[in-house]
Amino acid sequence: MAEASGNFGTRYPYFYGPEGRLVLVDSALEAVNRGSTTIGIKTPTFALLASHIKPVRALIDPTDKIFPIDGHIGATGSGYIGDILQLIEELRLEAQKHRLNFESPIDIGSLAKHLGSFLHNYTIYAVRPQAASVIVAGVDQSGVQLYQVDPSGTFMRGSGFAIGQSADIALDVLQRDYSADMSVKQAVELSNKAIEKALGEQPVVEVGRVTAQDKQFQKLP
C-alpha cells in the first residue's frame, strides 16, 4: 500500500502492483486473516461449519456467525462482519432466485460460483474488495459439498477449510486428524481442537451442520 500511495501519480492502486499482484485483494486477504478463526469440515455424510465467537469485550453478546442460506445450505465467514453480512445476503438472494426460476433448490457449486463472480467484480473496478472469506456447506444432487470463496473471487471445493486468525495452524490440525468416517461429534471435537491450537485459548464456538440424510442445515445448540 505504501508503494501505491507513494507512486500515486504514476500508478493507480486499483490495478496491478509489483509482480502482478492485486494489491487491494492482498490487503483484503490480510484483513480476513485478522478475523475470528472459522472452520469447515466435510465427509461424505455431513458437512460442519464452526466459528470462534468470543466477544472482544465484556457486555457484548457473541455475534451470530453461522447463517442458514436455504433449507439445505449454510454459510459462515471471516473478516469484516459488515462485508460478511452482505455476502450472506447475496447467497440467500441467489438461492431464492434459483427457486423462482427453476422451482428447485440451488446446487452448492452454482451458488459458490455465483459468489465467486460477485467478489471478482470488486477486483476489476475502482472499489475496495470485500474483506471477507466465506465457507459454504450444503447438500444437493451431487451429495455433501463444502466450498470456500475468498476476496479474489476464487472458489474452492474441499473437505476441510480454515480461515481467519492463525488459520494455517488450524488447517494443520485438520489435515492431520481428518478422517472420512468421522462422526459429527468427532468433527466438532476436531474443529474445537484446531481452533484451540490456533488461538491458544478455550474456543467459544457457534456450530452448524448439514447431513446427507436429512438434507437440512441446522445450527447446533
Binding site: 426460476n101 427453476f102 422451482e103 428447485s104 446446487d107 457449486g109 460460483k113 451431487s142
Partner: peptide
C-alpha cells in the same frame, strides 16, 4: 455450468 442437467420440472418451470 453446474455439471448436471435440469430436471423435467425445472425445464417446465423455465
Amino acid at each position: 455450468r453446474r455439471g448436471f442437467p435440469l430436471t423435467v420440472k425445472e425445464s417446465s418451470r423455465l
